[in-house]
Design a protein around this nucleic acid. Structure first.
Lengths: 337, 337
DNA sequence: AACTTTCAAGAAAACGTTTTCCTGTGAATT
DNA sequence: AATTCACAGGAAAACGTTTTCTTGAAAGTT
């Protein structure tokens, strides 16, 4: 028990060959009940456990999936992980978790580590899809699923996301229907291209369509953290012309914004409406309850994992684009003028 | 590029032996500048990357650390991970993430997987330390650090936590100083032994010392989720005699409780004070801002990771118990009677 | 000039498995 | 009775590395 025993030791103790032990362990054919019992009893009494690394070497599979996300302390991403883990686990895969903090060099570093480690697959929540990324995924042959945004540059791997343009468009439309004419947006960072850009685009489309003014000073591009939301709100509200509604592209930012607004004498939603995005756990606990675009990150993660398993199993992929549903949830942080 | 090349191919192309290639790759001595250049250029042009699995097999190290926590979507644990990853990364280790959802069988299952996979170390946020756990850690020899609670049954591995008894004692003391005489507690589940029990113990000590009544109907034991907090509050408030203060052993539960209270016509803190534990991100965003016992999970994670690295490097451990600081942060959810 | 020592580099063993290739049974078919 | 055949099980190759062993040459010592 103490000392690490190998299949050879088991073979010796059971008086059989290594091949036989291996066959017993893998339930292969061509081994008699007699020897099987003998081997099994030795395995039992020594508490022998096969070395997965050695196994991995010959089988050319590690049963490890690399999951790369911007940050884990963001509720959206941790829920994503929950969904991913749930399905991967049932297929006997484990997760190698890495976080990029939105830094592209880190992303590339981790992707290379994933490759070095011979991981069986990658689930990647992209920050910005650069040429370097394209290179990596062009040369490499690891099954991959992109998560959270469209990755059009590569035709070989699927992605799962919501229709961000449409969702943002609808959210903005809702504010417009509520008679808001001066609507600001707190979008994701420019780096985080697709998502940030798409939601901004949806917002702009809605405004344009309604013939409303679009001031760039009412558009911020910051990270999805409470602090950044706070800061973005301070920027927007420092303009001489102030909006009556803010569309925050994440609940985190919405929360930070509301925090700022209240500390500076604005009431939400009486003075200013705030719309969020994501519907994180606290959106309903917070007061006012957050009006927001609900995503289902657990489902998204699970979907991504399933798509990955499909690839690993060699099934031909059904669709590159996998859009999952979202839903506008009206609660208390927005109000008709 | 396309086809996976091995060190052998490189050797052939560079007209040297495998050993030489390996030596070049590992920067070992005894290889001339001439051959070195030749090998390096072949490596360059083929984009060769050594197979970490094969390396792991001979080096008997995987550079992988198993991290086992109850759930990742809890902000406390995800911050823990942030701290862990930060230091592990600088030492070239990656994280294999697993979540137990407080299920003991799952914990044991994952621990066994960790062992099978030859992980170099384990960071384990225990739910309940059972005999089976004891067995596992008795027989196994993997460097380990326990996180979040005292694990006294094993003298060989360190743990990092805060002094939960004292922290809960002080939190309760604070409420008592605020003239509260009827104080309820929402503790962690019974399963989650040390933490839940310890905080309950600190609470009881403070009450006893002050000669205050302790009703078991004012003590709940539930998971640290918003929903469980909501439910626990409903239980406590359904008693005929109602408390004037609730000490929730997690911010999550505190939030759920406040939610319940407000929905049922109680004002916080005017009618009932609510004290939290953890100081998660939203504790300051939420209104009323949460009075809470601040922990620093990022630091805790980093500390645990460092202790693990120490073990792996074979340094003798300095102390079994590693207590990290905590701090009572008074904000708006509590009020003097 | 003879003898160590140091360095360079290839051959081969090792890491712990799985799998292919053999060989030897005994049973089934002719 | 001769021939095939399915099965059991051992020996050995393979997976892709690192490391030990060896040999040979060049340099340093007496």
């Amino acid at each position: 028990m103490q000392i690490k025993s190998s299949i050879k030791d088991i073979a010796k103790r059971a008086n059989v060959s290594v091949s036989t032990v291996s066959r017993v362990l893998n339930n292969s054919k061509y081994v008699s009940e007699d020897l099987k019992r003998r081997v099994l009893s030795v395995v039992e009494e020594t508490g022998f456990k096969p070395n997965m690394v050695a196994r991995g070497l010959v089988n050319k599979k590690t049963s490890l999936i690399g999951v790369l996300i911007p940050r884990i302390s963001n509720n959206f991403f941790s829920k994503l992980i929950e969904g991913i883990e749930e399905v991967l686990q049932t297929y006997g895969y484990n997760i190698l978790l890495s976080t990029s903090y939105n830094e592209i060099e880190k992303e590339l570093e981790y992707l290379n580590i994933f490759e070095d480690r011979q991981l069986d697959g990658i689930i990647f929540s992209v920050t910005e899809f650069t040429d370097q990324h394209k290179n990596f995924f062009g040369e490499t042959v690891v099954p991959t699923v992109f998560l959270g945004q469209k990755v059009e540059t590569l035709k070989k791997y699927p992605y799962v996301t919501i229709d961000n343009i449409k969702a943002a468009y609808e959210a903005t439309r809702y504010l417009i229907k509520q008679k808001h004419k001066r609507i600001a947006i707190m979008a994701g960072p420019e780096k985080d291209c697709a998502t940030g850009d798409n939601r901004l685009q949806g917002y702009l489309e809605a405004l344009k369509e309604a013939g409303l003014p679009l001031y760039t000073s009412w558009q911020t591009r910051r990270y999805h953290t409470i602090d950044d939301g706070y800061y973005a709100a301070s920027q927007i509200m420092s303009q001489s012309e102030k909006p009556t509604a803010i569309f925050a592209c994440s609940d985190q930012q919405a929360l930070g914004a509301i925090n700022y607004l209240r500390e500076h004498g604005y009431r939400v939603p009486e003075d200013i409406s705030v719309m969020g995005f994501d519907d994180v756990d606290l959106a309903t606990v917070f007061r006012p309850k957050l009006t927001t675009v609900k995503q289902n990150p657990v489902d998204m993660g699970a979907t991504a994992a399933r798509l990955l398993i499909d690839q690993i199993h060699g099934n031909s992929l059904t669709a590159l684009e996998n859009l999952v549903p979202y839903r506008l949830v009206v609660r208390e942080s927005t109000k008709s003028l």
